[in-house]
Nucleic acid binder design. Sequence first.
DNA 1: AATGAATGAGAATTCATTCAT
DNA 2: CATGAATGAATTCTCATTCAT
Lengths: 216, 216, 216, 216
Amino acid sequence: MSRKKPPIRPRKRPLQRRAQETVVAILDATAQLLVKEGYEALSTNRVADRAGVSIGSLYQYFPNKESLLAALIDRHLEEVGQVVEQHLPQLAGVPIALAVPRMVRVMVELHQQDPRLHRALFSQLPGEAFLSRRDRLEASLRGLIEAYLLARGVPSERVGLTAFFVVTVVESLTHAAVLDRPQALADPHFIDEVSRLVVPFLEGSCTPLRSAPSFG
Amino acid sequence: MSRKKPPIRPRKRPLQRRAQETVVAILDATAQLLVKEGYEALSTNRVADRAGVSIGSLYQYFPNKESLLAALIDRHLEEVGQVVEQHLPQLAGVPIALAVPRMVRVMVELHQQDPRLHRALFSQLPGEAFLSRRDRLEASLRGLIEAYLLARGVPSERVGLTAFFVVTVVESLTHAAVLDRPQALADPHFIDEVSRLVVPFLEGSCTPLRSAPSFG
Amino acid sequence: MSRKKPPIRPRKRPLQRRAQETVVAILDATAQLLVKEGYEALSTNRVADRAGVSIGSLYQYFPNKESLLAALIDRHLEEVGQVVEQHLPQLAGVPIALAVPRMVRVMVELHQQDPRLHRALFSQLPGEAFLSRRDRLEASLRGLIEAYLLARGVPSERVGLTAFFVVTVVESLTHAAVLDRPQALADPHFIDEVSRLVVPFLEGSCTPLRSAPSFG
Amino acid sequence: MSRKKPPIRPRKRPLQRRAQETVVAILDATAQLLVKEGYEALSTNRVADRAGVSIGSLYQYFPNKESLLAALIDRHLEEVGQVVEQHLPQLAGVPIALAVPRMVRVMVELHQQDPRLHRALFSQLPGEAFLSRRDRLEASLRGLIEAYLLARGVPSERVGLTAFFVVTVVESLTHAAVLDRPQALADPHFIDEVSRLVVPFLEGSCTPLRSAPSFG
DNA sequence: AATGAATGAGAATTCATTCAT
DNA sequence: CATGAATGAATTCTCATTCAT
């Protein structure tokens, strides 16, 4: 599927402070270019230019273009992950009807921080390599949600799909709102509406799954 | 310089049929390459090769690479749009609890037709140009949904956001399922669960929006 | 051992005459640069420049730099091979003392044709890829020599090593003379001396190999 | 531009010992990389890495890449030269038929010591700079041989070409055998055969050169 | 002396696009 | 209309070398 990556000699890890600053500058420049000009216009040379370092310096720390973007995503996801992991544990024991709006608020705030970078990162980047990085975050998020749901009484055979639904729905709604309806995100109704969608669904998930679900 | 002007008007314009076939071959080749090799590996020369036409011919019909992908998206969306437009009008007068599962079924079947192309088209293609084309479809879909919701009693000030929610949620769930949980899509539970998520939400939307939404 | 050659899309074969001329121009330019500036200074861009074609045209016909050099070697070896194969068959039945000088003369003339290219090709090109191409020629040459030697009475168990000796010795002497003593090559003594070296050796090879060779 | 002249002569120069070790480590690393990865993959940065010193240190001792390879060749040739110069003087007075096999044995052993390095040094390194270094050794070797031959009665007008023949032939045969027929080198026949080639030739060189060499 | 961060010219290679035939 | 040869700017990446710390 891929015809890339001949065993690449591992790059130097930045040891001195100057090097650290260089790496940060490169990632910042990448983010800026991605946001301003889009993925297609992103080239390693332009990144180096904008970062104010030579192209050689870029390749001291990033073995190829892909690793550059991967590092940017990782940095972004790490920030996101920290926020999520700060808030989620506090929800243990909180009933669904209260926990969901809180969590949605966290998600919304997360997406509002740097919406343009979000957009660029998740609707412009091509390829599996990047999807997989995002999936890692979603997976860990799903894990936390599953634990919460189990504690709230969702039976174990339903918990997987239920968590998948919740994460997908909340993520996609905030995402789509960031992109297409930024004003909706600011509206407090937004959180209410998402909650009105998700809360009854979750509360209804607290029963065992019948093999032939009744519809009528 | 030019060698045109056949002195006699051709009866059947057989060349136009050939031209049509050429265009189809080119778009098919584009789709195949996109699916098999990914967007990064897509080049006009390779498309022409695989389509069995010369690169010159490709540029006879598509002024540039972007127009090629745009045409592919358009063709795909047109097929999708046709299916949707066939089914939606039949839902007029059908109550929400019945209409939603039917519509979800349609969406699922739509995504199952050529999931690999779907995936390539919507998670590999970079850039605004393509987002906008997809948005056009979603907008028209949203219009149909809004009309339906209005008829079912959703007040006009809520109908916009409500349709946005429904379209986003159903689209994102089927999409995510296609990519990450193909087996879930095949499971009949899937449609049930989506319905269980969406139906109460819609039914709850049939009341006027209070300016200060009560939460407790 | 090698970290190269991701499955390369095969290049166009030159169909039109214009393309043929381009290919020839490229190979000529390669040879000229190799001779004038040496392998280290050889770059695909400079080759294209000197050939008077664009770098793109070069890559239409040669998938990478190595293939360019390989093609040049092949062209050279083909010319050499033709000369050798014209002359060798005429030696059937000719006794060693007459055949050797004739053959040496052919080798000398061969090396005198374009000594600078010879030199560049065989003492500047790095790597196994090129050795192997040369070895192919030497192998076929050795095959012809072996047939001749067998016919002249060299026993089959000796014929392999004997042919190896002859080919290596004659080749290396002409080669070294081209490089270091060009005036020696022109001297008719040269052929005499090579013959004086090789003829007695070959004539002495016409006896069975004793397992414990006497030395004294 | 130059930064020499230590104002005070250091007493013990302990740094010089460390420096010597550094130089040795660098040359060893160069040899290893050359053998393992080939000339094309050799870079000063990789050499420094493998030697366990910083790139800066490398450039403290070697002003450029070429000087690095030159030093490696020199080191190798020096070792070779020592062996030869140990053995050759002992041959004074020894008749040709005995001296040749002894000398060939020395050559063979020489080439067997580190055949991979030999190969890399003499069939991978490009450029005149390196040829010239090898030629220096051959020249000095040729000098010794010439002296020997003169003493054995070869007339002075023949001695130059004769020595050239012998050195070239023995060198090329051992070299080719190392590369293509390593098993042949181990075989005691090899030395016998080389001797059978060279001894009669040399013995026949002990007569004055007639201006018009008779051939028949 | 040693380190390693930084440099940047230049190398190989691609690919959208043009145009003569 | 079709062909495919030709183009060349742009891209990714390397590597010998310099220099501040």
